[in-house]
Design a protein around this nucleic acid. Structure first.
Lengths: 202, 202
DNA sequence: TAGGGCATGTACCAATTGGTACACTCGCGA
DNA sequence: TCGCGAGTGTACCAATTGGTACATGCCCTA
């Protein structure tokens, strides 16, 4: 009764190889959303920006909802890639490693992506179904590697979890501060203060 | 040419006394928005929920935009009231004062308001004009009193600003964690860890 | 009691939105 | 060469939206 046309590819699109058009579109969509916002996205606006008709977006993703799901998922994936890509060379002190990570995280070129993160968080907290999945991994997915780092750095396993959770929260809080105020120096100083407390050095 | 009807009150509505209907409406609106979200608010939905026709909302606020501005402002005001209302009795150690503040801040009854805060942040970061004003006070308005508390507690004025900024960011980060995961115990433990580092006690 | 102004409701409008129907093109296998 | 199916565009639809026009009721004052 529906879909006399459009036998959507629906192909799971082997994540590595690009579902060709589909993956290309979702990547362009994430770029667009990172730049223009997630809340008031319209298929027509997006389509015009990335050079397809809104018809094609429906064709490839079935519905706006599904497209948003993929945008959120891809955005999360990018966030994760970000962490995994900065393979901090060993030999660095934990404090210096954290400093490096903070430095890369606050690269102005990532501002759009960070803003998108907070924007999606807001929608997820509100229960928007396409954004809700991020709540699952919002903390837990990051806690594991951070805990491992804590333990590796010699922290008591009993407190490593708390320390990891604290560090994650602080980074996010300061990131929000930075995005809101743009006061890089002030936020960096606060981060230095945190590192001093956290790693006890200085 | 416009407004043959509707000589909007526009009265500044002496904040204390309620602009009568207008203030009453905006308060109901904030409650509704705290419960149902800010992003996809429609005048009709809101009106139906609080018992007026969407026509009246336009009548009292001129436009949806202006209503949103007032909602944001009132929401901010509530946030501020929250802080000023908890006049922490003197004699408490700074750590205990902070603990008390955290306890009150994470009261489940405030969850809606907190969620609204993060939601509005997301929109403000994206440049939505009705939410943008919050960016101004997002950090600075809180820094002043926190710095004063730091100095009063004997902190070096040179680092008080950094410590205040750090504390604010950490609280917000952990609040986001709590809202996302609901893991009260875990977040509380992380906060305890922070207080230990921050105030050096224990 | 008459009248004027505020508050409110009903009906409506134009714009935008997600989604659909159908027509067209192009490349490839028989 | 024929035809078929995937990819794409154009035109359209129904729903929802913010906002407006107009009519009505209510209260207060003259």
């Amino acid at each position: 009764m529906v879909n006399t046309d459009d036998s959507h590819p629906e192909g799971e699109a082997a994540p590595g190889t690009d579902g060709d058009r589909r993956s290309q579109l979702v990547n362009a969509a994430v770029d667009y959303v990172a730049a223009h916002g997630f809340a008031d996205l319209s298929l027509r606006g997006l389509g015009a920006a990335i050079g397809v008709s809104h018809r094609m977006l429906i064709h490839y993703f079935g519905s706006k909802e599904q497209l948003l799901v993929e945008i959120v998922r891809t955005s999360e994936q990018r966030q994760r890639d970000l962490l995994s890509r900065l393979r901090l060379e060993p030999g660095l002190s934990p404090a210096d490693a954290a400093r490096l990570l903070w430095q890369q995280l606050t690269d102005p070129r990532l501002a759009g992506q960070e803003r998108l993160f907070f924007e999606i968080c807001g929608h997820a907290l509100r229960g928007r179904p396409e954004a809700a999945p991020v709540l699952e991994g919002l903390v837990n997915d990051w806690l594991e590697p951070l805990m491992a780092a804590e333990v590796a750095a010699g922290a008591d396993p009993a407190v490593a979890r708390n320390r990891a959770r604290l560090g994650l929260a602080t980074v996010r809080g300061l990131l929000l501060d930075l995005l809101a105020t743009g006061d890089r120096a002030g936020v960096d100083a606060a981060m230095e203060e945190f590192l001093r407390l956290y790693y006890g050095s200085k």
